[in-house]
Design a protein around this nucleic acid. Structure first.
Length: 129
DNA sequence: CCCTGATTCGC
DNA sequence: GCGAATCAGG
């Protein structure tokens, strides 16, 4: 597999959001957790927030869940919840999380990714209250 | 034993 | 730079 921009961006996004290397590898497809970890390490990542044990995948929520299903916090923990922001039509996530989860072939780069991640954090904090 | 990420090591 | 193998911790 080739580490395209979008792939790296999704890797960073998911990794940053506490997903395990295996989940990320599984989501990206064609890569093993070692590849993900290796790449992450190479990218300058390595430490992470507490890992989230969650089966996350681009499930087809077509007509259900009009709210963002992006997991925030840790399952079983008091502050665990979903984003809850209005999701884009036909998508399981809101704009911010879609940017992190799907990242279409955008020529843009870290900037937009950073912006997305930033918003994610912002939304998370907002929802805590 | 299972899992995890971290590092090393050969390609 | 890449990822499997290996290392180390839970």
């Amino acid at each position: 597999m080739e580490w395209t921009e979008e792939r790296v961006e999704t890797l960073k996004g998911l990794w940053k959001n506490g997903y395990t290397a295996r989940q990320i590898a599984e989501r990206l497809g064609g890569v093993t957790r070692n590849a993900v970890i290796g790449k992450a390490h190479r990218l300058g990542l390595s430490s992470r927030p507490q890992p989230v044990k969650r089966e996350e995948a681009p499930i087809d929520f077509s007509k259900m869940a009009r709210t963002c299903q992006w997991p925030i916090g840790h399952p079983g923990q008091d502050d665990f919840r979903f984003c809850g922001e209005t999701a884009a039509p036909g998508k399981p996530y809101c704009n911010s999380h879609c940017a992190v989860a799907y990242r279409r072939s955008s020529s843009g780069s870290e900037d937009s990714n950073k912006a997305a991640s930033k918003e994610v954090t912002k939304e998370a904090s907002k929802n805590v209250a």
